[in-house]
Design a protein around this nucleic acid. Structure first.
Length: 201
DNA sequence: CTGACGATTCACT
DNA sequence: GTGAATCGTCAGC
């Protein structure tokens, strides 16, 4: 397992990054133990050109991380209860991001059960961005954390996702974005039980 | 300071 | 299919 280097996050095309993150391993280890999971669903948010992106509205205290850092976590609270984990990409000054929507648990299942209050490790444990945030213990105070940290990073363990196993669709929950809601910026591994929404083949 | 609302989830009908 | 939970963020006064 090797951490993805800063150069990975600095690539220009956020959509390519979203595609490339499928199959990679998300790792966290705060104060209460390690958790690991394979990324099976992502969405790209193309900053200023994209009405669905938080950054579309400009640089605010919340979105500052997107504008001023790269290769860092962008964590925010949605609907007052869900911690959503994103990755800030591209060079500084360009507020692109990738949302991690779903993960398949690899390690630290007990910890995830404890955090989510679930008793059984079924597919709902890490399916959907709100659940991923909860299972991995993300909190908005972690926004701005480097992904080169020992407590938080994304790694490549050699697992590869063939092109034919990748599904592409419009993003979920962004209807308010008008035409931009139709952009094919969502990537997922076909047939994986942890992928949120309807399963398309 | 105030008010409207959201990159969602889950329980219930 | 419908609706509640729940609070930080941001625009507007």
């Amino acid at each position: 397992m090797k951490k993805l280097p800063p150069a990975f996050y600095e690539q220009e095309d956020v959509v390519q990054i979203a595609r490339a993150l499928l199959g990679k391993v998300l790792y966290t280890n705060w104060n209460d133990g390690p958790a690991k999971g394979r990324i099976v669903e992502t969405e790209a948010y193309a900053g200023l050109q994209d009405k669905a992106s938080h950054a579309y509205r400009g640089n605010t205290p919340r979105t500052q991380v997107l504008f001023e850092t790269t290769g860092t976590a962008y964590v925010y609270l949605c609907y007052g209860l869900h911690q959503m984990f994103n990755i800030a990409t591209n060079t500084k000054g360009i507020p692109h991001a990738v949302l991690i929507r779903a993960v398949a648990p690899l390690e630290g299942i007990e910890l995830m059960l404890q955090r989510t209050g679930k008793k059984m490790a079924d597919a709902s444990l890490t399916r959907g961005p709100g659940n991923v945030g909860k299972a991995f213990g993300f909190h908005r105070s972690q926004s701005g954390w480097s992904l080169q940290s020992n407590a938080l990073y994304i790694a490549d363990d050699g697992y590869e996702v063939p092109d034919e196993a990748i599904g592409i669709s419009p993003r979920i929950g962004v209807d308010y974005a008008g035409a931009d809601a139709l952009l094919p910026y969502r990537f997922y591994i076909k047939g994986n039980p942890y992928v949120s929404g309807k399963v398309k083949l």
